[in-house]
């Protein structure tokens, strides 16, 4: 009996300890990352660290490698990492399967989410939530529906969407809201938002921003990829990075957003002596 009690005591300590770590958030470290697609190098040495509680924005013109970075972190099958490392709390992300990356706390709101016929959004969401829980500890159906409904209300979504097939026939705006819905239900440690603002009208943009801001806390780190400043008017980043030619070429605080908005990117190109900011392929 004593033995059991001691075990339990350690278990409780362990839980408190883990909980403590959870609150201070995770760290995603990207070091000298080189990525190819179909033999063409797109990322040429990206360095970036995102910690829990921090909101980072990656900006830059089209074709500079921003979306490639997001896809490479999540493990998109078309992208091949040729050099460098991605670590999540010190663990090697590149060694992980895509689902393991998600379970390690990474989430990517995709620019072009897949349409999956025959699978309802609701079934998909429940499978996703259960994938993060232990077997035998699946979320009770009623609890799931309640949580889903709450978040859908918050994002001003049509409830019928839950019974529609995943992303099939969704408008651009509906797809983006659906990505944020998943983000809010799965509560990852690090969220990466790949052009979540593209194709959104101003009302949808406000709703999506409201969702992202709701997640802001000590434990949640966010990497926002965009080439418009307008999203950043609603979601204020702590750090701003500019990508060109497959690298982060400039980093700064939120004041960088204002300067980019008024002056564009040319001053950075002049400062760094860059003529063509793209990586030469559609990235």
């Amino acid at each position: 009996m004593v033995k059991v009690k001691i075990k339990l005591f350690f278990k409780i300590l362990y839980i408190i300890f883990l909980g403590g770590i959870g609150m201070s958030g995770s760290t995603l470290e990207i070091k000298d990352l080189h990525v190819e697609i179909e033999g063409k190098e797109i990322l040429k040495g990206v360095n970036l660290t995102v910690k829990g509680g921090e909101f980072h924005a990656i900006m830059g013109p089209n074709g500079t490698g921003k979306s490639t970075l997001a896809s490479a972190i999540m493990g998109h099958p078309k992208y091949e990492v040729t050099k460098g490392s991605i670590l999540m709390d010190g663990e090697d992300v590149l060694e992980m399967e895509v689902d393991e990356r998600a379970k390690a706390g990474l989430f990517l709101a995709m620019q072009y989410p897949s349409e999956i016929s025959g699978v309802t959004t609701s079934d998909f969401l429940r499978s996703s939530i259960n994938a993060h829980r232990e077997e035998g500890d699946e979320i009770p159906l009623m609890k799931f529906i309640k949580e889903m409904d709450q978040v859908m209300d918050y994002l001003d979504m049509d409830k019928n969407m839950a019974q529609r097939y995943l992303n099939e026939g969704f408008s651009g705006g509906e797809k983006k809201r659906n990505e944020i819905l998943q983000l809010m239900l799965l509560k990852p440690a690090i969220g990466i938002l790949d052009e979540i603002d593209s194709g959104l009208d101003i009302d949808a943009l406000k709703v999506v921003s409201k969702g992202i801001n709701k997640l802001r806390n000590e434990a949640f780190g966010c990497l926002i990829i965009t080439h418009y400043q307008r999203l950043l008017n609603y979601v204020t980043p702590d750090y701003v990075h500019v990508m060109m030619q497959g690298r982060v070429v400039k980093s700064g605080g939120p004041e960088l957003v204002e300067r980019l908005e008024s002056e564009g990117y040319d001053w950075i190109k002049q400062e760094l002596g860059i003529e063509d900011e793209t990586v030469g392929v559609d990235a």
Partner: peptide
């Protein structure tokens, strides 16, 4: 494979 990637990116195993 892109559909698989999308589902797995939410933590769902390859088999599931």
């Amino acid at each position: 494979p892109v559909q698989l990637y999308y589902l797995m990116s939410r933590g769902i195993s390859k088999q599931e």
